[in-house]
Design a protein around this nucleic acid. Structure first.
Lengths: 146, 146
DNA sequence: GTTGTCATGTCAACATACTGACATCAAGTC
DNA sequence: GACTTGATGTCAGTATGTTGACATGACAAC
């Protein structure tokens, strides 16, 4: 790898961090009026996409430790947003489900987040979006496989 | 924005988060043997690129609060990695500089990080890298400008 | 000169996330 | 059956990061 490649690679690393930081900040601003944090939104969104998954599975999908996800879930449980099955499943997991109140809250959150994402993608035509998706997928996969 | 666009946008948001999480994890693994955290590396790297900048400026460039950067700098000072000017500048800022020990430590860190970045970009030709850079830049800028 | 504004550095309190450790239970292995 | 392996949930301790608040000093406006 040449020097210019190395410099460009470092720039890309910083760019990934900067973009994620900006996106997180905007999402936080958009979700705060709804009383949700970004982590809570991610939790609810994943539970909506796949109801009944366990806390550990949820942790993996939101890129946090299962301990952190557990305290997050407990907070959401106190707020009446999720209900957890009292009876553990085959692998000791307790299924989590959204309450109807969480469904409506999540719907509002989804539109707020959609606005942020639409703003982020302003100026990128479908071809460019596909290129971005392909590039990020390649980066992620290259970093993930052991 | 159509439904498929919205779904694609959400996928992109998750992809940015996933890529950044994977990159951070690999960097952490690569830097741990050197006794550096990712935040510390970012701090040293920015100080190397622009010696003498203030703690607040450093905080902005590494996407953390200036309070967090201050405790980070104090830790690096205790380790003999940075020296801070005792005399504050015109705006009360205290310039930070790398010690020679930090220079050598940073050099090792740079090669370790370069390996991670090279791995990340495996499978992307220069054209694809340019497209990725352009896409991320557009996303970041669209989210940043008020 | 006085005032208002802004950025820095710093202190305190709080929130969040992580690691390490342990018990539990299912499923495979011998 | 006895054993190991792997995944989950949970407790405790710690590290890290954030917000809020305040004092300080420079600069511009008046």
């Amino acid at each position: 790898m040449t020097d210019v490649d190395a410099a460009g690679a470092r720039e890309l690393g910083i760019l990934i961090k900067a973009t994620q930081a900006a996106l997180n900040q905007r999402m936080d601003e958009a979700l705060r009026p709804l009383g949700l944090t970004v982590a809570q939104y991610a939790c609810l969104s994943n539970l909506h996409a796949e109801p009944g998954i366990s806390s550990s599975e949820l942790a993996r999908r939101t890129f946090v430790s299962r301990q952190s996800m557990n305290v997050l879930l407990q907070a959401l449980e106190k707020q009446g947003m999720v209900e957890r099955a009292p009876e553990p499943g085959p692998r000791r997991e307790r299924a989590a489900l959204l309450t109807s109140r969480a469904q409506t809250s999540l719907a509002q959150a989804e539109t707020a987040v959609a606005d942020v994402l639409a703003r982020m993608l302003t100026g990128l035509d479908p071809t460019q979006r596909d290129a971005l998706r392909a590039g990020l997928t390649a980066c992620r996969d290259a970093l993930l496989d052991v």
